[in-house]
Design a protein around this nucleic acid. Structure first.
Lengths: 339, 339
DNA sequence: CTGAAAGCGCTTACAG
DNA sequence: CTGAAAGCGCTTACAG
């Protein structure tokens, strides 16, 4: 097998005696009724035969489009985000796009830094999970720098933008009701100190439901960077110690639930007899836990699909500032053995 | 805030009255003793001030380098691979590289397909987790297409190549010994039907250790695509039923262990009294399991580091075919409560 | 120590 | 229906 030199349009042009222009038109499907059937066939066959692929750098340079999308996740190694990423990658690739991933760790500073790094490389679109306090930056990015951005998992009310998110309020409502119908009355909510939409909506959903039952609320809000730490666990432990009557907990995120589960395990509490549990977000860990934990699962395939299809679609409709893509998907309560 | 048009070298050249050549040299640190200090400073200050970033498409087109690395993982949504990916991404980015991810699902056909898609786009290097039967393709990629490739997690003996892998034999040996020293004598190995190096080495490590103790071997090898399925669980269940004396199991991968754990749980076996467990690869699920499962953990940060640093380094030493980067890192036995 | 100029491989307005 | 030519923003061999 000989090493084949990379072939260019010029080579094809020479070989076939057809101008580069014509070849370019054919490749980019701009042939339409401009070019004769025979020429099209001739060129396409030849391209197929030699396996020609256009040089994407040259295309980018010429068109100003890089066929690149940046996915700024909260944490790309988190099972939720990596599952989303995997599904998007495939669809994106089939549409000729590549995706670059990065993680904000939910830190505003890091997100800004990342943004600056990417802004000047040619990026066609951003899919962003904005961290706390990123509202103004996001607004600028969209309305002043005129970047194509799709917001994921959370959104802001103060300005219009594209997003795809979960129906968080309803999810929390459904979970709380489910706990109630299991006979629990001292239902607690353990969430995160945050203004991010999913977090406030989950809390709201819980609160309003408790209110409708005229039941007392118990809620604990943990700082974001304490979720996975011993401090976080301590906070949960204290909360439980101070409110020993609590007989059910709705956890606002899976990481929160994992910390909570550690505490509950160490206290020797029985699930669901002593304390019933429902958590947002599914993970294989919940299914394997003893007993299996009930969850509000996010529809990962649908989410990924909307996200990438949506941004692909928006990029096609170019500068039409009026087109907004806003999707709110339903979560699914999966009843296992913990509630 | 006004929208600033993207600035190019020509703009800088005009503004400063310095030729593009000089500016290019300065930006690419090829200034050295060719350009006067003052000019360098003047240019650098200006670049800093206006926040100029070179157009990477133009650079790619000109140099033939895309500053892109493809990471072909077995499954990028698997916690092990996504953790590796996250760490590599950061280092790569700081070195001016972007990484494109994809998943082979351990299927040869898919890997070939992926490779063809990438080959003609300019990619500077591949980091590949080769699936079963990919040996010839890999060899061709390296020796005939002269691509820069770093192999991860597994390697082949039949030709020389760069790789970073775990010391699998030693890990299996250590795990088996540990099970033995807990008093277990009917120690089983549950692995995967595969010629991939880690899988055969783990089996070897187990076998030889058992042999050195003059103990009977019990091994079950499951088909790769059955690992996470009910068939896989059924195979394990049968294996255990046919060999009721088994009092310990070494699982060759975490997914295998998860399937095994389901079976053990459903059979009501007590860990470690009835049956002791050690699994390869750590996952948070093992720590939270009841009881916490002991594992041979892979050193993820070191692995990611070697992987990306290694390929960065190899790319610098360019065409020097003699340079091989081969690293074998030690796993760590973490004793929890299952052995 | 510095610069003019060619050229990487495309796309696209323009001309015929 | 088809083609010649400009130009995207760089890098680098060459000349001075």
């Amino acid at each position: 097998m000989k090493k084949k030199k990379k072939i260019s349009m010029k080579d094809i042009s020479k070989e076939l005696g057809i101008s580069i222009t014509t070849i370019s038109f054919i490749i980019n499907k701009k042939a339409e009724n401009k070019i004769s059937k025979e020429v099209i066939k001739k060129v396409e066959d030849y391209i197929e035969k030699v396996g020609y692929k256009p040089n994407s750098s040259a295309q980018s340079l010429r068109t100003g489009k890089s066929k690149t999308i940046v996915f700024m996740a909260e944490d790309i190694s988190d099972p939720f985000f990596s599952a989303i990423a995997k599904q998007m990658e495939e669809i994106a690739f089939n549409n000729g796009y590549k995706i670059i991933y990065c993680s904000t760790e939910n830190k505003k500073e890091r997100a800004i830094e990342l943004l600056n790094l990417f802004k000047d490389r040619q990026v066609d679109a951003f899919i962003i999970t904005p961290p706390e306090g990123f509202e103004d930056e996001l607004k600028r990015l969209i309305y002043e720098e005129h970047q194509m951005v799709m917001v994921f998992d959370r959104y802001f009310d103060s300005f219009k933008h594209n997003y795809v998110v979960l129906e968080n309020y309803k999810g929390a409502e459904e979970a709380t009701r489910s706990l109630y119908s299991s006979g629990k009355r001292k239902i607690a909510f353990i969430g995160i100190e945050s203004n991010l939409s999913p977090l406030v909506q989950r809390l709201e959903g819980y609160k309003n439901t408790m209110n409708s039952y005229q039941l007392q609320e118990y809620s604990l809000l943990i700082k974001f960077d304490q979720i996975k730490t011993l401090e976080g666990q301590k906070a949960i432990k204290n909360f439980l110690a101070q409110n020993p009557e609590i007989d059910a907990i709705l956890f606002a995120t899976n990481n929160l639930a994992i910390s909570g589960l550690r505490v509950i395990k160490s206290k020797g509490l029985k699930i669901p007899e002593d304390i019933a549990i429902i958590s947002f977000d599914d993970r294989d860990i919940f299914e394997l836990f003893t007993p299996p934990i009930s969850v509000i699962a996010q529809p990962v395939p649908e989410l990924a699909n909307e996200l990438i299809k949506g941004t692909l679609q928006l990029m096609k409709t170019k500068e039409t500032r009026e087109v907004f893509y806003q999707k709110v998907l339903k979560g699914k309560l999966i009843n296992r053995k913990s509630n």
